[in-house]
């Protein structure tokens, strides 16, 4: 895992479910096929209602210059991020769109597992509710080692919760490399 993650923040609210992250009609693409993997980036967050897309103002497109990859690198969300279906296409869509980390108050269980075990992005939990305190477009820097989020635009600094027991899996790059490392998998 890199020691810092830097980029523009895209801010969403509570209960961003997997249908909003990647609508079901696009699940016909197979993420195991590289040309199709990028399609998930194109349609990432396409079912978030416009008024809730890019808070606090809303109506901020997630994609600007490139139709597949977003200019944003970090998503800031509220409670229960990634609730709903078990589709791994959700963290895949964010990964394909160029998202490196999500910072939310807490996650739905399956999204969190998928993000960690698939090694797509780092799901940080914040101590404070940050989706009301960070604005879409703010430049932010996550200091992984010290569990801090710096808002470079405002100069504010926020505490993140330690990654804890999943840190070794994230460090290894997912559940397969982790299982090999701890001797659970010999292939």
């Amino acid at each position: 895992m890199q020691s810092t993650i830097t980029g523009k923040a895209y801010v969403l609210g509570d209960n961003i479910d997997t249908d909003q992250i990647i609508p079901a009609q696009y699940l016909t693409f197979n993420p195991a096929v590289p040309e199709e993997y990028q399609m998930f980036g194109k349609f990432a967050l396409s079912s978030v209602p416009a008024s809730q897309a890019g808070l606090p103002k809303g109506h901020v497109p997630f994609h600007t210059k490139d139709e597949f990859v977003s200019d944003y690198r970090i998503i800031v969300g509220g409670k229960n991020f990634g609730c709903g279906s078990s589709r791994e296409h959700a963290p895949i869509a964010l990964d394909a769109a160029g998202i490196e980390a999500v910072v939310a108050e807490f996650y739905a269980r399956i999204f969190f597992r998928n993000a960690v075990n698939g090694g797509y992005l780092v799901p940080f939990e914040s101590v404070n509710r940050l989706c009301d305190r960070i604005c879409t477009g703010d430049d932010v820097k996550i200091d992984v080692e010290n569990n801090l989020l710096h808002n470079l635009t405002t100069g504010e600094q926020w505490q993140l919760k330690p990654l804890g027991e999943v840190a070794p899996i994230i460090d290894a790059g997912g559940v397969f490399p982790y299982a090999k490392k701890v001797g659970m998998l010999k292939v």
Binding site: S86, E88, I110, N114, N117, G118, F176, A179, M184, L185
Partner: peptide, 20 residues
């Protein structure tokens, strides 16, 4: 319980999964 593709791929090959 429901799981994603990576976890399911892991189970497919090993019959095991880590669970909290």
């Amino acid at each position: 319980t429901g799981i994603g593709n990576t976890d399911a791929g892991f189970v497919m090959g090993t019959g095991k999964l880590w669970v909290k």
